[in-house]
Design a protein around this nucleic acid. Structure first.
Length: 863
RNA sequence: GGAAGCUUAGCUCAGCUGGGAGAGCAUCUGCCUUACAAGCAGGCGGUCGUAGGUUCGAGCCCUACAGUUUCCACCA
């Protein structure tokens, strides 16, 4: 390494990525003797570039993949992107509108071309971002939900389900977006409180005997009323059930019916029933055989049912209808009213409930294996609490509306015979109608819900419906990583489609993480302008810095906040690693390093190797349990505290001594550095690889760090003595540092300290780290007890009274501890019920403290 | 209306099966010590939301309450 170079990742991160790609190091083999490990990348929507949430989600996956790869697995990280039908269509239509065009003007095939341009543009951009972030996906296997392979899977799945009778066409109450001019699924409706009004309208009895009053938030739907309902138990109205009413503004008459759906307490206790435009009313209508009259058309205008109001926009229609009612004296009152209104998740237009003819997937049977999978543990959800959401969703599932009246996406493979109307499900236009032998067909104009293709993603990307070697090797995949917000929307769909199509769960583990929020805890969004572009951070601080900031504080399933402070802290850490490696490399120059087995280990070395072994074990356990944030935090603490603050400092006296002492110590430093690089590589791949590539003495052959085996714990039984004594030395150093501060001795001043004989082997280390001068002849002064023994700060002038006071303070502190320990130990319940280990530890502490106290008391009496 | 999460230092959050309260940032003090002043060393700061309960022992388990966030359902 160049010892003058400072950490500037922008200069070389992209070169490192190229190094990996040139070595084809991300590629997974279809045939391998290594055990397989696979992750399917949740395909980002090509509606826009990737955001910081993607960065976290993908970093999580990259850490797992890199870790497993280093452990010798044949790792497949299967990448790809999603066409996001409705969202993309919305953006395309918007774009056309800016040019003053509509999609109908340019036609379906031209529109299709535009869509592909869009896919390519954003697809490329997302890929570029992902490369820049250092992701080690198998890019050669990149897929797109609209590509040939995915399309083949979509058609196969649809036709299979159709032929099994699990896909059917039916008229249903659906959510209609008048802006997108399509139905949207229940999942795509977002509810928000809106200030509106409650109109109280008089409906006169047909027999002229007065009127009743109904309350409504949507007076314009009045034209579609086919009844007014009351609760059967509502005594106020029992007598009028069955009477007929004159429906205002029309010449129709409608009955008063009784239905449990009506709440007595709400409004006037009377509800106008409009089956065509309200899901609840629709159900009531079915129960009472009411006529379904469509008042609102697909453009969001009133239909001819509305008589003279036909053709008006809804709001205008409402206004005019209310005015008319008022004129006729039928408007009792208007109250302000706050209610919950559903909006399209894509364009935020208020949705209209409407009866339309759509394609559905029958869910009841399909979801059973998916529910069972989690119950039996074939699929494990982490953290476990998300199982609640999973079960509740699947157990209450409604049939899935899969048709969309848009152009972007997979066209439904249903062909209607032009002659007899018979519907056939085929991959291509059928040659002949099986019923009437006609050869003329028209394809269903609708396209499939975008989730249909993404529900097949875990196996469509692996080659299904063909029984490919890839599928055999990697399915079921090992884990799926995603945020909790699409647990129900996407994850569940993959599971039941996995069982339906392949017969197995698509993944063994589902790791659910939280969302990345801004500094103030708000969701990142375009309207708030608080979004962060991952690429921008990479260009400024490097990808490692962003990855570290995103993963380090992460706790599974919890939201995290992104802040500049975290970036600064991350940069501080990486800079530290950088400088430590510079230190190691600097002192390695011209030395022939020893392999670690040949090094004559000192106590400090045994201490470091023990710590290193412990942290390797800790990291593996935590990563295996998917606790990446914990694993990373522990590794960082080890690097900062144990390696940099202590071991590097410990090593200096040996290094400056030269000769064998230097050679041994520098060999240990190099060994430890490589182990640290391995430990950190999955998290911060660039800087670790860069350091390794530039450490010629430890990597003469230019091997890739990313392909080395991960750091392993080793047998440490022989190293116990050195570990223990070094721990005591550290305790003494801390105590001496504190002693100096207490006595107002500047850090760069070296006071004389009388040390115990046990400190003799560590004299240079203690002198260096505590900035003191140890002497070993007895002198008067302030005494402190450490785990290494008694130290005395030699005072220039010995103030007897001050020394005595200070000794008594220390003794009283020890007495407090002794009292606490003996109190616990004299509690028979504690001794009997607490684990033996704890009791033993407590006894040891008591013993140690008693000894320390005795020594101080001896000192006191000698004064 | 149903469900889940969160509440710990000034701020952001850890705290794994119950066994002496932690980190980062901020703040204060001292130090240019030959990897790093984008640094080092040290300090200040917490009745772990409230009230009960279980236990030898509770931040952790149980119950209730309060505040807060999210998901689901959705009342005309």
């Amino acid at each position: 390494m160049n010892n003058k170079q400072s950490y500037n990742p922008i200069e070389w991160e992209e070169q490192i990525y190229k190094l990996w790609e040139d070595a084809n190091a991300f590629h997974a083999e279809d045939n391998s003797k290594k055990p397989p490990f696979s992750i399917i990348m949740p395909p980002p929507n090509v509606t826009s570039q990737a955001h910081i949430g993607h960065a976290m989600d993908m970093t999580f996956q990259d850490v797992l993949i890199r870790y497993k790869r280093m452990q010798g697995f044949n790792c497949l990280w299967q990448p790809g992107t999603d066409h996001a039908a409705l969202a993309t269509e919305h953006k395309l239509v918007e774009k056309l509108a800016k040019e003053g065009k509509t999609k109908e003007q340019i036609g379906r095939s031209e529109f299709d071309k535009l869509a592909w341009e869009w896919y390519d543009y954003y697809g490329d951009r997302i890929l570029k971002q992902f490369h820049r972030l250092g992701f080690s996906a198998d890019w050669q296997r990149y897929h797109f939900t609209m590509d040939e392979q995915s399309t083949k899977a979509v058609l196969t799945a649809f036709i299979n389900l159709y032929n099994k009778g699990l896909i059917y066409r039916g008229k249903r109450q659906t959510n209609w977006c008048v802006h997108c001019k399509s139905v949207i699924s229940d999942d795509e409706v977002e509810y928000a409180d809106e200030a509106g009004h409650m109109w109280h309208i008089r409906y006169p009895y047909a027999d002229g005997s007065g009127h009743i009053v109904v309350a409504t938030t949507r007076p314009e739907t009045l034209f579609g009323d086919t009844a007014v309902a009351v609760n059967p138990k509502d005594k106020r109205y029992t007598k009028i059930v069955g009477k007929m009413l004159n429906l205002p503004l029309t010449d129709r008459q409608i009955p008063i019916i009784a239905d449990d759906y009506v709440e007595k307490e709400f409004g006037t206790g009377m509800v106008k029933i409009t089956p065509a435009h309200d899901p609840n009313d629709y159900e009531v209508g079915k129960r009472h055989n009411l006529e379904v009259l469509t008042v609102i058309n697909k453009e969001g205008k009133l239909t001819e049912i509305a008589g003279k109001f036909a053709g008006l926009d809804l709001l205008e229609g409402r206004k005019q209808a209310v005015e008319e009612l008022d004129k006729l004296g039928l408007l009792e009152k208007v109250e302000p009213y706050k209610h919950n209104v559903g909006h399209c998740a894509r364009c935020h237009t208020a949705i209209e409930p409407m009866i339309t003819e759509q394609w559905f997937v029958a869910m009841k049977e399909l979801v059973k294996p998916a529910i069972n999978a989690v119950k039996t543990g074939e699929l494990q959800i982490h953290p476990k609490r998300f199982e609640n959401n999973y079960f509740r969703w699947l157990e209450n599932i409604q049939d899935w509306c899969i048709s969309r009246q848009i152009w972007t996406g997979h066209r439904i493979p249903i062909y209607y015979c032009d002659k007899c109307g018979h519907a056939v499900a085929e991959r291509q236009t059928p040659k002949e109608c099986p019923k009437c032998h006609s050869t003329s067909f028209t394809q269903d104009p609708d396209v499939l819900d975008t989730w249909f293709s993404s529900s097949l993603w875990p196996f469509s990307t692996l080659g299904w419906p063909e029984q490919t070697q890839t599928l055999k090797q990697f399915y079921p995949t090992d884990c799926l990583v995603t945020a909790y917000d699409i647990l129900t929307q996407w994850l569940t769909k993959m599971v039941y489609m996995g069982y339906e199509c392949v017969g197995k769960t698509p993944f063994k583990h589902a790791l659910i993480h939280g969302l990345v929020r801004d500094e103030k805890g708000r969701k990142m969004s375009k309207s708030l302008g608080n979004g962060v572009d991952p690429l921008e951070i990479c260009e400024k601080y490097g990808a490692d810095c962003l990855r570290l900031a995103l993963i380090k504080d992460m706790s599974m399933g919890m939201d995290t906040r992104y802040s500049d402070t975290k970036i600064d802290t991350s940069r501080g850490f990486i800079n530290k690693l950088w400088n430590a490696s510079k230190f190691v490399s600097m002192h390695s120059e011209g030395l022939e390093l020893l392999p670690i087995e040949k090094v004559k280990l000192q106590a400090k070395d045994e201490w470091l190797l023990t710590k290193l072994s412990n942290i390797a074990k800790n990291a593996q356990t935590n990563i295996d349990n998917f606790e990446l944030g914990v694993a990373l935090s522990n590794i960082c603490s080890f690097v900062l505290d144990d390696f940099c603050d202590y071991y590097v400092e410990f090593s200096k006296p040996s290094i400056f001594a030269g000769g064998d002492a230097k050679r041994n110590t520098v060999s240990v430093l190099n060994y430890a550095l490589v182990e640290i690089l391995k430990l950190l590589h999955p998290f911060i791949p660039y800087v670790t690889e860069y350091i390794y590539q530039n450490s010629k003495q430890i990597n003469a052959n230019g091997q890739l760090l990313m392909l080395l085996p991960y750091a392993q714990p080793h047998s440490i039984s022989k190293l116990v003595a050195g570990f223990k004594s070094t721990e005591n030395v550290i305790d003494a150093i801390k105590a001496l540092r504190a002693l100096k501060v207490e006595n107002n001795i500047a850090l760069n001043v070296k006071p004389k300290i009388v040390a115990p004989q046990d400190a003799k082997p560590f004299e240079d280390i203690i002198n260096k780290l505590a900035t003191v001068e140890l002497v070993f002849d007895e002198q008067d002064g302030k005494v402190i007890m450490t785990n290494l023994g008694k130290f005395t700060l030699v005072a220039e002038k010995v103030d007897r009274a001050e020394l005595e006071k200070q000794l008594r303070e220390q003794i009283s502190k020890l007495e407090f501890e002794i009292k606490r320990s003996s109190g616990m130990l004299s509690n028979p319940n504690f001794v009997a019920k607490a684990p033996e280990k704890l009791v033993a530890a407590e006894k040891q502490k008591l013993e140690d403290n008693k000894n320390k106290k005795a020594e101080l008391e001896q000192k006191l009496s000698a004064l």
